[in-house]
């Protein structure tokens, strides 16, 4: 065929590339000017903002909390989404599709509405707290809003659906015949899970886990609302630095740190997955 497919690529590529490169270079350049507050910046390029991010206790704590809640949310997401994905993928009836659409619908609905629901569930005079207090489990109304656990749960609302959908496609690549073979040879279900399913799903789990971790690191909405102005993760702090403190170059510095972290995780995941494929190839 004499169609020049590469010509088709050019306009779309230019559109994305110009927006990407211009917007990213501008804020990255801005991040190297000293922030004087209220939108004013210094005139010379230097590393003052970066030095501050990595020496100031507040920023360091924020970095640590971001990594911590993201890691916790990733682990919880994987632990919950794998059984769900497995059950759905192994279902032979049309129920599998129905369950899956339930996941998709809840994933598509904006996270703000879900967080709203969580706020209602944990409201002081809400149904849950009345139950907890009447049974004497707690004496004070319990709320997850403004706690790190709350942020972890918020992040899970953001990632669980994607976790299930990703792992669903992973489980689908594992032939049932392998499980049957293990069972015929007398392996118990937990053993079959440990020795057959887990190793085969491992590359997918690692890839999915890193994807979820990446999403958590960059998650803004759920972290901001459930952090309740008490727990700050990096994206929340970036937004506040601009909206409340009007420090553009400081926010740019924090955004650059976040961006580099996310890119590093991506590169790491690509390397890890390549290695695993390589190892599997050698073993087989």
């Amino acid at each position: 065929m004499t169609v020049r497919w590469d010509l088709l690529l050019i306009p779309s590529f230019l559109f994305t590339f110009i927006l990407l490169s211009v917007s990213q270079t501008l804020f990255l350049e801005g991040s190297f000017y000293k922030d004087l507050g209220l939108g004013r910046t210094g005139d010379t390029l230097d590393l003052v903002n970066y030095v501050r991010v990595f020496t100031d206790g507040f920023y360091l704590t924020t970095l640590w909390i971001t990594v911590k809640v993201s890691a916790l949310a990733t682990i919880c997401t994987l632990v919950f989404s794998f059984p769900v994905a497995y059950v759905i993928a192994r279902m032979r009836s049309s129920w599998g599709m129905i369950l899956l659409s339930g996941i998709v619908v809840s994933t598509f609905i904006t996270i703000v509405i879900k967080v709203f629901g969580i706020i209602i569930i944990f409201s002081a005079d809400g149904w849950l707290n009345q139950f907890l207090m009447s049974t004497g489990i707690t004496t004070e109304p319990y709320s997850i809003i403004g706690t790190q656990e709350g942020v972890v749960i918020g992040l899970m609302y953001f990632t669980l659906g994607f976790g299930v959908l990703t792992l669903y496609s992973v489980v689908q690549t594992i032939p049932t015949s392998l499980e049957e073979a293990a069972e015929i040879h007398g392996a118990s279900r937990p053993r079959m899970f440990r020795r057959v399913i887990l190793p085969l799903a491992m590359p997918g789990l690692v890839a999915g886990g890193l994807m979820v971790f990446n999403m958590c690191m960059g998650a803004f909405t759920s972290a901001a609302l459930l952090g309740g102005g008490k727990v700050f993760t990096l994206p929340v702090l970036i937004q506040r630095t601009i909206m409340m403190e009007v420090k553009y170059s400081m926010a740019g510095t924090l955004a650059a740190v976040l961006l580099v972290a996310v890119i590093l995780i991506n590169v790491l995941s690509i390397i890890l997955i390549r290695r695993m494929h390589f190892a599997r190839g050698v073993l087989a």
């Binding site: 211009v22 917007s23 990213q24 501008l26 804020f27 801005g30 990446n214 690191m217 960059g218 998650a219 803004f220 994206p235 970036i238 937004q239 601009i242 553009y248 926010a251 740019g252 955004a255 976040l258 961006l259 996310v262 890119i263 991506n266």
Partner: peptide, 15 residues
């Protein structure tokens, strides 16, 4: 997709 949306947000605002 990979760039956190907050980062794209401030990048576009400054642009």
């Amino acid at each position: 997709l990979q760039i956190p949306a907050v980062v794209s947000g401030i990048a576009f605002l400054q642009m």
